[in-house]
Amino acid sequence: MVASASAFLRIGLIQQLRRRRSRMVALEAATVAEAMRILAGGGIDMAIVDDALTVPPAGDRLVAMIERQPGRTLVIATHQQREVPPTWADRVRVIQGVIDGVLDMGAIARALPAALDEVAVDQDLRRAGPRNAPIVVDQAGRPLRGRPDIILVAASTGGPSALTALLRHLGPLRLPLVIAQHMPADQTAGFAQYLAAESGLQVIERGDGPLPPSAQVTVLHGGSDYRLTCGRAGQLRLVATAVAGNVFHPSADLLFGSAAEAGVSAIAVVLSGMGEDGARGAAAIAAQGGRVLVQDYLSCIVAGMPQATRAACPSAAVADVAEIAERLARWSRALIPRAAAMVGG
Rank of each mutant, 00 (worst) to 15 (best):
C313M: 07
V321K: 03
A196K: 13
T54C: 14
S156I: 11
Q16E: 12
V153W: 00
R168H: 08
Q139T: 11
Q69R: 14
S251V: 07
A29H: 10
A3F: 01
A311D: 08
A317C: 12
G231H: 14
L170P: 08
V318P: 00
F8L: 05
A196Y: 01
V203H: 03
G43Y: 05
I179F: 03
S214G: 13
P184M: 01
S258T: 08
D60V: 14
P250V: 06
G190A: 15
P314I: 13
I324K: 00
I99Y: 10
A329R: 10
A89G: 10
G43T: 04
R338I: 14
D277E: 09
A133H: 11
A114T: 14
G41N: 13
E198C: 11
P56V: 12
C230A: 15
Q123I: 08
L254Y: 06
L17G: 02
G234A: 07
S156E: 04
S6N: 00
T78Q: 04
D225V: 13
S251G: 06
L166A: 08
G207M: 03
D60T: 15
G344N: 14
H182N: 04
A303Q: 08
R291H: 11
G290N: 07
V217F: 01
G209C: 10
M46L: 15
A303D: 15
P306E: 02
G159A: 06
Q69K: 13
P160F: 00
A268F: 09
C300R: 02
D104Q: 12
Q216M: 14
D45M: 13
L163K: 01
A322H: 04
D186K: 11
D149N: 06
G275Q: 06
V219S: 01
R310M: 03
L271Q: 03
A334W: 05
R68E: 14
A317L: 15
R18Y: 01
E118M: 15
V302P: 06
A286T: 09
L220S: 02
L238I: 07
P176W: 09
H79V: 13
P176H: 08
G223H: 03
A33N: 10
A325M: 09
V63G: 04
A340W: 12
S299R: 06
A40E: 10
V63S: 07
A340N: 15
Q235L: 05
